[in-house]
Design a binder for these strands. Structure first.
Lengths: 246, 246
DNA sequence: AATTTTCATTTGTCAGACAATTAAAAGTCT
DNA sequence: AGACTTTTAATTGTCTGACAAATGAAAATT
């Protein structure tokens, strides 16, 4: 791990990479303590601020955690699902917002993956998952609900659907796809009529999951995808027309 | 963005969060230059090393890039797909290796998502994608191929399948799922017999995609999932038996 | 024996300095 | 005037040395 070539450029990045590789390759195991900053500085033959910059890079990726005090130091962090969700969501959000990804492309990816969850969720969902889905549908039916709250409930509904599959890896993957799309979804202003339509489709999905009828849930998801795209197209067209008028 | 409470703990993390939020919320746009380190230090009322640690955190997430020199500085980085792939793969790899995710769980998630790609890939795949798939199958048939090379070719085959869907967001999501599983896949030693079986299934998948027959490709993917699980179960059982014998 | 105090270790932060890089500005020569 | 060279200023990258804050262990005290 101590390897550092004669390349004296980007030292902190090089050191971060060396330690990261050691973690990924299993040379440093979970909860193992790294040498102190002073020791690392000596090992790599750099100053302590340089080592610290490297450690902060790793901390940003949740690869290590640090603790002050006599028995403190930097420890290899067990990457938990919530931490991974967080990074996944940040990355997905930025990827979508910075790359002019069309709404349709993001939507297609999201619903394709959700449809992949449907058979598993239909087979395995607990009554808790079903209850969560029903509760969110109920909330979405409340008249006074703000657009933001409606969107948040939408995310929660789909989250319950995905979690029903009982596969944490799938849940982790979908978290990014679903939550990363929220800024795009928030662009759509939901009329009373569109809300009713969405609630109907959510109900149909929940019914399919309850009946353990995967094709029914998948078909409803497909219709929801079409309808979501339709709404988005309308909003974007209006926005374009308004921009042209100005 | 300049907000920093009286909380004088974890300053560099706080500053990183403030700048990250400004980027995510669009207050700082792509390619915009951040204030110089000295200016940031003054704004946040901290020292330059602290600012630098914050900037390194952001650099680790590919949110900014830095450039030296007179017109240099830190710039908001456009998060590209390759950068996002890389982070996705690192995160997925660690998540799987550190959390004792069962092979079956990871496998299920991966194939569920791949099956979701199959209809899109069957409809849209170009001749290039098909040629890549065929080329990888051909390589997998070569007798002298090492296990590592066989696994790498396997990844490339599935990558071509997913890319055939023509949806970069899906490709990005799948990259983590497929490549993150590689360490787990590498545990399996492929006998000549198992390779032949896998090549047959790959051929069947490619045939389905070529014929634009999604159900055929999906069925083959399902069989491949079963077979992969079967192989893994065998390897793990043997390993367990050996461990008990020692 | 229990409690308190002291102490050593480690991370977090700061101040100031110099090196390396880079582009623009200034100067110089043809 | 135009092309080339030199200088300069700005900025990041790194180093040195220092002190503050936290924290657990050891020592001292009751």
């Amino acid at each position: 791990m101590k390897i550092d070539p004669n390349n004296r450029a980007d030292l902190s990045a090089q050191i971060a990479k060396a330690i990261r590789d050691a973690i990924v390759e299993g040379q440093l195991i979970v909860d193992e303590r790294l040498p102190s900053e002073a020791e690392l500085a000596e090992q790599f033959d750099v100053s302590r601020p340089t080592v610290r910059e490297a450690l902060k890079r790793l901390a940003a990726q949740s690869l290590i955690r640090t603790q002050r005090g006599a028995t403190g130091g930097a420890f290899v962090n067990r990457l938990t699902y919530p931490e991974a969700y967080g990074q996944q969501i940040t990355t997905a959000t930025l990827l979508l917002s910075m790359n002019a990804v069309s709404f349709q492309t993001a939507c297609e990816a999201r619903f394709a993956m959700e449809r992949a969850c449907a058979p598993l969720s239909a087979a395995r969902r607990s009554s808790d998952h079903l209850a969560s889905m029903r509760a969110e549908v109920f909330r979405q039916n409340q008249p006074g609900l703000s657009d933001e709250a409606f969107c948040a409930s939408d995310v929660a509904f789909h989250r319950a659907l995905v979690d029903g599959a009982g596969n944490p890896v799938l849940s982790y993957q979908l978290a990014g796809a679903v939550e990363g799309m929220q800024p795009l979804m928030n662009m759509i202003t939901f009329t009373a009529r569109s809300r009713a339509q969405i609630v109907d489709l959510h109900t149909e999905i929940a019914d399919g999951i309850e009946a353990r009828d995967a094709p029914r849930a998948e078909a409803a998801l497909t219709r929801l995808e079409s309808y979501t795209n339709e709404l988005a197209t309308g909003v974007l067209a209006k926005r374009k027309a308004k921009a042209a008028a100005d």
